[in-house]
Structure formats: structure tokens, C-alpha cells
């Protein structure tokens, strides 16, 4: 089962929830878990799930490599490129690899067979092991805009048949959608504030458009009001867990500790969250 932890608003507690859920599964179910940090522009799950590094894999896209002897400067590739990654100045086109999306269209339209592929690095996937949790983190290189491409590369590296948690990027943009697709269940984390509710509604619209099953976790209950609860009731969205605004949680977080390690009384809450996820995932399959 693939469970994705997502949110509209940033900073609501996606990563906290993802790493604590992974640790809870490890401790209560004795099964291997894999966690994929899909927030490739600023991955941070490794700060909380410290473990043994197992390796690092470079992720490349294929960009065009021109053979100037074959190129007759017809500019068909330049005209084809929708990303302005090629420029024509009357001879072999200039390539701006940082704008290329690696679609390969320029190679297909070249009548002279003058284009081959070459690798262009966009980032890495780092793998680490913490107990029976395997953490894979996507890390996009600075200055590269292809976050979704790296998310796809990261998800291609997940092992089938293992309970999987995806820590999604915030928001509802392409990289979040790339993370959400294919999930068996989505947990939307929010906070009980006007901003939390506003961005939650955007996230709900997104997961509904993707036809995914989902529920809500409300974090830091007590800082705001009950507008998120009222919205979920009106929209018939299950609330999977409410985490209180507890100073001890913030203190554990600031030390880089997992909540379920520092505050053992929370283990039962996260175990209940997993139970609720499994329940709602199965429920809606049957329905």
C-alpha cells in the first residue's frame, strides 16, 4: 500500500507525520517500511530519520547532442522545442540544457539524424536505512527546475510489495501531483486556521480531480478554531487524527527527535492513525 502525506499549505507537519508514521509501523507491526521524501526541492525527512547511508544515485535527463557535420541548420528542432531550450543563429543550434525537459522531440524531428542523447544531471536519489525503515530522498540540484522529473525518478525506485509512505511537496503544483498519482490513500495535513482551511480546500480539489481516496489530519489543534472540522463534516471527509498543540511536540521537533520516540504516549495515536488509514482505504474500495 502506498500512502501519501500531502497538504495544501506548507509547514503543517507533513514530514513530521510521515517520519512518525514510519517509525510507528516499524515498532508496532514489525514489517519493513519504505519512506520516499518527494519534497525534492527541500528534502528534510533525513533530519529526523537518521540512519546508515546506503548510496547515492545520480539522476540524469537526456538532452540533445548535435553532430555539426550532419546538421544543416534547418531549425526544425528549434521550432519544435516548446521550452526555448534551443536557439538558432544560422548554424548548429545552441543548447540551454537548464531549460530542456528531456522530451526527445528534437531528435525525432531532425531530418538529418544529427542529434544523439547525452546525460544532463538534475539531482540525486539518496538511500539510507534506519532500523527496518528504508528512506529514499530525492534531492534536486540547485538551479534545476525539473522537480516533477526527479519525483518520477524517485518513485520508479520504490520497491513493490512493501508498505510505502510518500512525503509530498507542499502545494498543488506539478511536483505534488506527480507525487500523489498512483497513491492508494492520501493523508492531507492541515492546521485549524483560515490559511490551513483555505489551502486544504485546494488540496481536496486536487485529490478529488485525481480520483484518490483521502482523509484529513488536523495538526496543532487548539491554536485556531473549529472551521476545519466543520468543513470536513460538511464535505463528508474523514478526520483521521487530531494532534493537539503540545509544547512537548515542538520541543522534540526542535531537537530533531521523533515524537513517538520522545513522547511514548503518542505512539498509540499514530497507531490509531494507521488503523484509520487502512480502514478508510479498504472501506472506499468496497464501496
Amino acid at each position: 500500500m502506498i500512502v501519501t502525506i500531502a497538504s495544501g499549505k506548507g509547514g503543517t507537519g507533513k514530514t513530521s507525520l510521515a517520519v512518525n508514521l514510519a517509525r510507528t509501523l516499524e515498532r508496532t507491526r514489525d514489517t519493513p517500511v519504505q519512506l520516499l521524501d518527494c519534497d525534492v526541492e527541500e528534502p528534510n525527512a533525513h533530519l529526523f530519520l537518521t540512519g546508515t547511508p546506503l548510496g547515492e544515485e545520480t539522476i540524469n535527463i537526456a538532452v540533445p547532442d548535435f553532430n555539426p557535420d550532419k546538421c544543416d541548420a534547418c531549425d526544425k528542432c528549434v521550432d519544435f522545442c516548446q521550452f526555448n531550450a534551443l536557439a538558432s543563429v544560422g548554424k548548429t543550434p545552441l543548447l540551454f540544457p537548464e531549460l530542456c525537459h528531456g522530451c526527445g522531440g528534437c531528435m525525432l524531428v531532425c531530418p538529418q539524424d544529427a542529434i544523439r542523447e547525452k546525460d544532463y544531471r538534475i539531482g540525486v536519489v539518496k538511500t539510507a536505512r534506519a532500523g527496518s525503515i528504508t528512506l529514499k530522498s530525492g534531492c534536486l540540484d540547485i538551479g534545476v527546475s525539473l522537480a516533477s522529473t526527479l519525483v518520477h525518478a524517485l518513485k520508479e525506485r520504490l520497491e513493490d510489495g512493501i508498505t510505502t509512505i510518500l512525503d509530498a511537496p507542499p502545494g498543488t503544483a506539478c511536483q505534488a501531483v506527480a507525487t500523489l498519482r498512483g497513491s492508494d490513500f492520501v493523508v492531507l495535513v492541515t492546521e485549524p486556521t483560515p490559511f490551513g482551511l483555505h489551502d486544504l480546500t485546494l488540496a481536496v480539489d486536487t485529490v478529488r480531480a485525481l480520483d484518490l481516496r483521502f482523509g484529513v489530519v488536523i495538526n496543532r489543534v487548539g491554536v485556531g478554531d473549529d472551521r476545519v472540522q466543520r468543513y470536513c463534516a460538511a464535505e463528508d471527509i474523514p478526520i483521521l487524527l487530531e494532534i493537539p498543540d503540545d509544547r512537548r511536540v515542538a520541543e522534540a521537533y526542535s531537537r530533531g527527535e521523533l515524537i513517538v520516540d520522545a513522547l511514548p504516549d503518542y505512539l498509540a495515536h499514530f497507531a490509531q492513525l494507521w488503523h484509520n488509514i487502512a480502514h478508510h482505504a479498504a472501506l472506499e474500495v468496497a464501496a
Binding site: 521550452f83 526555448n84 531550450a85 536557439a87 538558432s88 543563429v89 544560422g90 540551454f96 531549460l99 527546475s145
Partner: peptide
């Protein structure tokens, strides 16, 4: 309103 590469396109235009 080009998403990216406006400078590249503009340069080709004047070339």
C-alpha cells in the same frame, strides 16, 4: 508571457 527562454527567443528575433 513566455514561461521561460524569453531572452533566447528575443535574441533569435533580432538576429
Amino acid at each position: 508571457n513566455a514561461a521561460q527562454g524569453a531572452g533566447i527567443q528575443a535574441a533569435q528575433t533580432i538576429v
